[in-house]
Amino acid sequence: MNLTQNEIRVLGTLCEKQRTVPDTYPLSLNALLAGCNQKTSRQPVLELTESDVAAALDRLKELRLVNEVSGSRVARYAHQFEKTVAVSGPAAALLTVLMLRGPQTAGELRLNCERLYSFADISSVEAFLEELTAREPALVRELPRAPGARENRWGQLLGGDDFSDFSSSTVKNSTEAGELATLQARVAALEQEVGELRSALQELLAAR
């Protein structure tokens, strides 16, 4: 498809909002613009204009990835991504997060996909990634491990295979985010263990 960055952002936003805010989906141009320019859950952060989004929508409509929904006083837009590209819901969720956040590890993808699709474990994420890699043409690619990184990242190929925009600082931030998520999970487990020990101690003291 060789989509531009703006087209990828518009398509990814439509895919995301369909699942996270179904009550307001399909999206108006203003809502879509706001979603594209979000400061959170986006890498890189963009500042698109209405004309940027409109131009991206025109191309995506030509590719049958987006259509304009009739029956409303305000034009609204919906994606046809899963149907046109022929991917399953879990695979589409992975591609959506990759479109919006850039290359990520399997662990980061599982965490960031939570609102779109709940994967049972990292191995299930990896299975869908391998399936997308085996497509012809491939839709994702496993990237070489960056210096200082503990895991390989995956990137989507809807815009080609140039990942030069994702600098080492992006890798560093991505790695730190994954480590923070792991630390938070460990803290939660320790808090639960402390609570159980406290309850057991109270029962023991009450029995004496």
Rank of each mutant, 00 (worst) to 15 (best):
N152W: 02
A75L: 04
S28Q: 08
A181V: 11
R150L: 14
W154N: 07
V10C: 12
T13Q: 02
E130D: 12
P137V: 08
V87I: 11
N173T: 13
P44D: 11
L14P: 03
E68T: 11
T40S: 13
K172L: 12
L183E: 07
P44W: 13
V187N: 09
P44V: 10
R76G: 08
V69H: 11
V187M: 10
S169N: 09
A86S: 10
T40K: 15
L183I: 09
D121S: 12
Y25P: 12
E7G: 07
I122H: 05
L183F: 09
L29N: 08
S124Q: 12
R135T: 07
D162I: 06
F166W: 15
S167A: 02
S123C: 06
A189M: 09
L111M: 02
N37G: 14
I122G: 01
P26C: 11
S28G: 15
C15W: 03
L158A: 06
V85A: 03
L139N: 07
L11N: 05
V53D: 03
D165R: 15
N152K: 15
V97Y: 05
E179Q: 15
G155A: 15
G102T: 05
Q18H: 01
L57D: 06
E131V: 06
P103M: 09
E62P: 05
E136F: 02
Y25I: 05
T13Y: 03
G89D: 12
R110H: 00
A206L: 14
G178C: 02
T133N: 10
D161H: 13
S41Y: 03
E193K: 14
A106L: 02
L190P: 01
Y117G: 00
E176I: 06
Q202M: 09
A206I: 02
N152H: 14
N6S: 07
L94V: 13
E108H: 05
L129W: 05
R153I: 04
Q104A: 12
S88L: 07
D52C: 09
Q184H: 09
N2C: 00
P137S: 09
V66S: 05
S164G: 10
P144C: 03
Q38C: 08
A34Q: 14
R198G: 05
E47L: 07
L158I: 03
S167W: 00
H79I: 04
M1Y: 06
G148M: 10
V21H: 10
A106D: 02
E114H: 12
E179A: 08
